[in-house]
Simulated assay, not measured.
Amino acid sequence: MSTWSSLYLEVTYQVLGWIAFASWSFSFYPQVILNFRRKSVVGLNFDFLVLNLTKHSSYLIYNAALFFSPEIQNQYHEKYGYDEMIPVAANDVAFSIHAVLLTIFTLSQVLIYDRGNQKVSKICILISSTAWAAALVCLIVAWPKHSWLWLISVFNTLQVIMTAIKYIPQAFMNFQRKSTVGWSIGNILLDLTGGLLNFAQMAVQSIDQNSWVNFYGNIGKTLLSLEVVFFDLLFILQHCVFYPVDKKKKVVEQRVPEGTIAPLIDSPDNSKETV
């Protein structure tokens, strides 16, 4: 089994990994704090949250399984070579656990704070349900032959797909409202930092091992970082260039009449109002 050739690069790898963990983990808090201060989640797309939970749950399954299971690690080495290092670090597992918990907490804010007329769309529910149904089918297929590496690779692919999809409702909602009010830019800046550091961490491992296998051996992590950088740059453009906040004007938020609360899940009668 491969070991580090350079102590300096090993330390650098760990430092970059935990800074990335901190950046990505802290990226959840600006939105949580913003929701708390406003006592409102208007402007935060609920489809994003639901898809985000599916994404992070899938990523947690992949990271934890590959990091903790000797059997899956052996299958990885059989496929990519015994001289290759496992492409999942402790900070990846820690981040995934934290991300699932914070996403659940943010969803709980949706239940207690003013949400205007926003709802979870039927399309979002369909996508999430289909994803988990497909994962269940793959589990049934993998079970007889113990094809665990293939199975967790399915979850890794699933999280990549969910990452690509989850940002679209929020980006489109910002476009429709011509505003990013209610969507924390602090979240985006920290998220972007984590994505860039993630790339740097993988590059350090590749330099030490003189191999780029970890980039395609954990293609999900590679694509995740690419997607994060792309969408975060888009959100920064929306916030700073396309729809800058005019602090001299009061921002009028769309709210439901006092004393009423819109249903959280879209109903057939209100499907046309879904974001």
Rank of each mutant, 00 (worst) to 15 (best):
W148M: 11
S179E: 05
I165E: 00
G116N: 08
A94L: 08
T103L: 02
L66K: 09
Y82N: 11
Q109D: 04
P87N: 06
Y62R: 00
I188R: 03
W132L: 09
I188E: 00
T180E: 09
F95S: 04
W143T: 08
K178E: 15
S179W: 02
G81R: 03
S184I: 02
F172A: 13
A164S: 12
T106K: 01
E71Q: 14
C138I: 13
A89L: 09
D92E: 06
I152P: 05
G186W: 06
N91Q: 10
V110L: 01
N156E: 14
I125W: 07
L139Y: 14
P144C: 12
S153N: 15
N174L: 10
K122F: 14
F175P: 04
S147G: 04
A94Q: 01
I165F: 05
Y59W: 08
L60K: 00
K119G: 00
P70G: 11
K79N: 06
F175Y: 15
G182D: 14
N187T: 11
H98M: 10
S96N: 13
I125H: 03
G182V: 15
Q170F: 12
C124P: 02
F67I: 05
Q118V: 03
A142N: 12
R177K: 14
P144G: 12
L111V: 07
Y82G: 15
A65R: 00
H146I: 07
G81S: 04
F105L: 15
L189E: 02
Q118P: 02
Y80I: 06
A164G: 15
L126W: 14
L60E: 02
L189G: 07
A90M: 07
I112N: 03
P144L: 11
A134W: 11
K79C: 06
F155P: 06
I152M: 08
L101E: 03
C138G: 09
K79P: 00
Y62S: 01
E71F: 15
A133Q: 04
A142P: 13
Q170I: 07
I188Y: 00
N117D: 14
L66C: 07
A134I: 13
P169S: 10
L151K: 10
Y62A: 02
Q118H: 10
I72M: 07
I123V: 15
R177V: 03
K79V: 10
A64R: 04
L107T: 09
P169K: 01
W148N: 13
M162L: 15
V181M: 01
A142V: 12
K119F: 00
N174E: 11
K119E: 12
